[in-house]
Lab assay of single mutants.
Amino acid sequence: MSGIALSRLAQERKAWRKDHPFGFVAVPTKNPDGTMNLMNWECAIPGKKGTPWEGGLFKLRMLFKDDYPSSPPKCKFEPPLFHPNVYPSGTVCLSILEEDKDWRPAITIKQILLGIQELLNEPNIQDPAQAEAYTIYCQNRVEYEKRVRAQAKKFAPS
């Protein structure tokens, strides 16, 4: 494992614990031996107030490669969400998460999670990743928002 990646992720964890947006979660997972795995984080993004996503808490896994922060983490909703920019596998399609697009090593975990929260309610229809959600979003916004509200209710924190 890269010392650069681990040191950056340790800084990220410290900064997150000191200050993070209300309702968001970002925690490194534990290895079988109980030690912390900084390369694999369990996160959760709350649906934004005043949107059909409100009330939901959407679980996301963030996986970092050894060359982080040169390369972005892979962000994957578990379980996958109904959304035009979420692949059926759950992987998020967002330009700041793509090395050859808008990724920059200075982007923080907090910025990534806030960017994904923004994307939930403002899909990028130029870059669809899920045919069904994309089609319904474009053709029947009322039905799309109904499905999103049902999903938010399903993923409401207990």
Rank of each mutant, 00 (worst) to 15 (best):
L6Q: 11
L6M: 15
S7P: 14
R8Q: 06
R8G: 02
A10H: 05
A10T: 11
Q11K: 11
E12Y: 02
E12V: 04
E12H: 05
E12L: 05
R13V: 01
K14W: 08
A15L: 12
W16M: 03
W16T: 04
W16Y: 06
R17G: 02
D19V: 07
D19T: 15
D19L: 04
H20I: 05
F22V: 04
F22W: 04
F22Y: 10
F22T: 01
G23F: 03
F24Q: 02
V25L: 09
A26K: 05
V27T: 03
V27L: 12
V27M: 14
T29I: 10
T29C: 13
K30F: 07
K30D: 06
N31P: 07
N31D: 05
P32I: 13
P32E: 10
G34I: 06
G34E: 09
G34H: 14
T35Y: 02
T35R: 02
M36A: 03
M36L: 14
M39N: 11
N40Q: 06
N40I: 07
W41A: 08
E42P: 03
A44H: 07
A44T: 09
A44I: 11
I45R: 06
I45W: 07
P46M: 05
P46D: 05
P46G: 07
P46F: 06
K49H: 14
K49W: 08
K49S: 04
K49E: 14
G50M: 01
G50Q: 10
P52L: 09
W53E: 04
E54A: 09
E54S: 12
E54V: 09
E54D: 06
G55S: 10
G56Q: 04
L57Q: 11
L57E: 12
F58R: 04
K59V: 12
L60A: 12
L60F: 15
R61P: 09
M62W: 01
F64K: 03
D66R: 02
D66Q: 11
D66P: 12
D66E: 12
D67A: 12
S70R: 09
S71G: 15
K74H: 15
K74V: 15
C75N: 06
C75P: 15
C75Q: 01
K76F: 15
E78W: 11
P79L: 12
P80L: 08
P80C: 06
L81E: 00
L81P: 05
L81F: 07
F82G: 04
H83I: 03
H83A: 03
H83T: 15
H83C: 03
P84N: 13
N85M: 10
N85Q: 02
V86R: 02
V86Q: 07
Y87F: 14
P88D: 15
S89Q: 15
S89L: 09
S89V: 06
S89R: 05
S89T: 12
G90I: 02
T91V: 15
C93A: 05
C93K: 03
L94P: 00
S95I: 00
S95L: 04
I96E: 00
I96R: 09
L97A: 11
L97C: 15
L97K: 01
E99D: 15
E99W: 08
D100N: 14
D100E: 08
R104Y: 01
P105H: 01
P105Y: 03
A106H: 01
A106L: 08
I107S: 13
T108W: 14
T108K: 13
I109E: 02
K110H: 09
K110G: 05
Q111I: 14
I112M: 15
I112C: 11
I112L: 15
L113V: 12
L113A: 13
L114R: 09
G115H: 00
G115M: 04
Q117D: 07
Q117Y: 10
Q117P: 08
Q117E: 09
L120N: 00
P123S: 03
N124F: 08
N124T: 02
I125F: 10
I125K: 04
D127I: 00
D127E: 11
P128S: 13
A129L: 00
A129R: 03
A129T: 02
A129G: 04
Q130P: 00
A131C: 13
A131K: 10
E132W: 05
E132P: 07
A133I: 04
A133W: 03
A133S: 11
Y134S: 11
Y134K: 04
Y134N: 05
T135D: 07
T135S: 11
I136C: 09
I136H: 07
I136T: 09
Y137E: 02
Y137P: 01
Q139A: 10
N140W: 01
V142K: 15
V142E: 15
Y144F: 05
E145Q: 11
E145R: 14
E145T: 13
R147I: 08
V148D: 00
V148H: 01
V148K: 01
A150N: 12
Q151P: 02
Q151E: 04
A152F: 07
K153D: 15
K153Q: 09
K154S: 14
F155N: 15
F155M: 05
F155L: 10
A156I: 08
A156M: 09
A156P: 10
P157G: 10
S158M: 14
